[in-house]
Structures are given as C-alpha cells and as structure tokens.
Computed example of a mutant assay.
Amino acid sequence: MNLQQLRYVVATAEHRTMTDAAKSLYIAQPALSRAIRDLERELGMTLFARSGRGVVVTAQGRRVVKLAREALDAVREIEELSAHGQTSDTELRIASTPSLEPGLAGRLLPAYTAERPGVRVHIVRCDGRDGVVNAVRDQRADLGLTDLPVPADLVSHPLERQEIVLISPPGVELPDPVPMSRLNGMRLVLPVPGSARRREFDALFARYGIAPVPAVQLDERGNWLNTVRSGAASLLWYRGMAEQALRAGLRVRSLDPSVRRVIALIHARRRLPALAQEFLSVAEGGSAA
C-alpha cells in the first residue's frame, strides 16, 4: 500500500464513478480500476460495490476511506513541518515536461540565477503533465512547470499562453497557417486512448468537427519527433518544440484558428521553501500572457 493508492481510494469515494475519479487524477480509467482491484486484493476486502455506471462505498470501504483521508492529512502536516526547516537549502528542484524545458532553461532559469547565483537548480525531467503532477505530489520537486488544468489539490500560477503548432515531415505541402479543417483525415501521432492528454485532443477535434487518423498512438514523448521524421505522421505540440523540430529538418506551421494552452508553475498546498517562493516571484514578474 502507498500514498498514491490512498489518493485513488479517496478520489473514487468522492466522485462515486471510476470515470470521474480518473479524470480528477489525470489517469486512465482502466488504470484506476486496476489499482483499486489490486488494493482490494491486497487488503482482502471489498472497498467499492459496483452499481450501474458508478460505485458505492461498502461498510469496510467507509472505514478505509476515513483512515486514508486522515493519513493524507497527516502527510500534508509533515510536509509543512519539513518546509519550515528547508530555509537553508541551496538546491531548488523543478519538474518539467520535455516540450517546456527549453523555455525553462532558456528564459526562467537565467533570470533567477542572475539574482541567486549560489543556488543550484535541478530540473526533474518528467514524461508529460501527469509526471510533473506526481513529482510535485511525491516531493521529488518543489515546483512543476506544465500546462493546465491540474488536479485541485495543487496550486497553479499561470505564466503564459503557448501556441499549439503542427509539426510535419519534410515534403508535406500545406499552407501556413493550416486551416483546422485540413486536419480531417490527416495521419497524426497521438497519445494512447483513455489518457488525459488524449481526451483533450479528442475534445479539440470534436469542437471543430474533424477526425484525424491516429497513425501512431504512444505516450513516450521522446519518440514523437523521430516518428514524424520517419514520415509516418504529423504531430500537434507546443511552439516550444519548434526549434528542436526545425533542427531535425521538420516543418512547423501554425493552426487557423490559433490554439493556445495556459502554461503554469504548480506546487503542493503547503508552505513553500524560500527558494521556491523566490523563483515564483521572479517567474511571475517576467512572464508574458
């Protein structure tokens, strides 16, 4: 049993459906269901009874949910005590997704280290928004840089709105900007079905009434540009990846209408170390919407 499982139990009890609980946790619904089943098997008890499309907390489950909430509250209190003792630290840990790291390293970090040259900043590289959220929750990072939305147990500080662009193999003839309608039937690299990121893309496509072809479906973002370079498909991702894509010989085009996402620094709901508070001040002071 671990803290992540306790969070899963509490979220499922609060939302009363696996689907809504999974959305709030930014994980796939099958993954949540499997984690709950594994925990029930480990404890030797049934925590949730399935009822139609939802779940009902059992008598044993109510006791476990109560204790899980108390345990998570205790962990938050311990984190607050820990934060009070971190004022002498000289290392700041920031989690970031690969696509946002260039902006972090190229703009935010130089501005911060110019004011605090004695501070060592360690970038915790994470595979997507879920990885950043988990790094902050698990205290592997003091702050996280990711796009919104994030779960309600985290605090977000919006910094800017970053454009989503189309990255295509060389030789693909398209106008710039690319009308959204041209994505209909286009072969795209997409996250796996059921993931939080895939749901966001599907909502975007539904909004414009288009149906791209999922040519490749994977969450390993490190392989996305290689897949585009092979000519298998195009990719929708942030303008921050444009320089890396151009160096790889790929084409980068805007969309019409333009699509932008809010980029934010996030942290847990607790007293932040002084270094993290100072970084927030520098980042918000120099951010542009």
Rank of each mutant, 00 (worst) to 15 (best):
I164D: 00
E42P: 08
V262W: 02
I123M: 00
L81P: 03
I123L: 09
N226S: 15
G249M: 09
R34K: 15
D73S: 12
T87Q: 15
A196I: 04
L275N: 08
G286N: 12
A74F: 01
R239A: 14
E115G: 11
L265G: 06
R76L: 06
V9I: 15
E160I: 08
E14K: 09
L236M: 06
K23A: 14
L6E: 04
P151R: 05
E284M: 09
H122L: 13
Q277P: 07
A264M: 09
R116C: 01
V124Q: 14
A28H: 00
A248L: 11
E80P: 08
R197V: 11
L204D: 07
G194L: 03
A21G: 11
R270S: 10
I266A: 07
R116Q: 07
D73E: 15
T58R: 02
A203V: 13
E220R: 09
P98T: 12
Y112H: 02
A283P: 03
A274N: 01
G118F: 14
G144Y: 01
Q244M: 13
F48Y: 08
D20E: 15
E160A: 14
Q60E: 15
V75I: 14
R120K: 15
L235R: 04
T90R: 14
R229M: 11
R34M: 10
P117L: 13
R251D: 12
T146P: 08
S88T: 11
L6T: 00
A245I: 01
V57A: 08
D176W: 10
A111H: 10
S99F: 05
V262D: 05
S254E: 06
P175L: 13
S156H: 03
S230I: 02
E243L: 06
S281F: 03
L255H: 03
R69H: 12
V150N: 07
A13F: 05
G286S: 14
F205V: 10
R76W: 01
M1P: 00
P214L: 06
V132T: 04
P110F: 13
T113P: 07
D256T: 04
P214H: 12
I78V: 15
E101I: 14
D256R: 09
G194D: 01
L92Q: 02
V178H: 04
V172M: 12
Q162G: 03
G240H: 07
R93G: 03
E220S: 14
I263H: 00
L145P: 03
L39K: 05
L145M: 10
L100W: 00
V56N: 13
D147G: 08
L154V: 12
N134S: 15
R199C: 03
V136A: 06
S195M: 02
C126R: 12
D20I: 10
S230K: 05
V262C: 02
G103Q: 12
R197M: 11
I167Y: 03
R271V: 04
G85H: 10
R16Q: 15
A31Y: 02
L6C: 09
A203F: 15
V262E: 08
I210W: 06
Q5E: 14
F279A: 04
L188F: 11
E173D: 13
G61Q: 04
D127P: 01
E173K: 05
D89C: 11
D153M: 05
L174M: 10
P214Y: 11
P170T: 09
E115T: 13
L250H: 01
T46N: 08
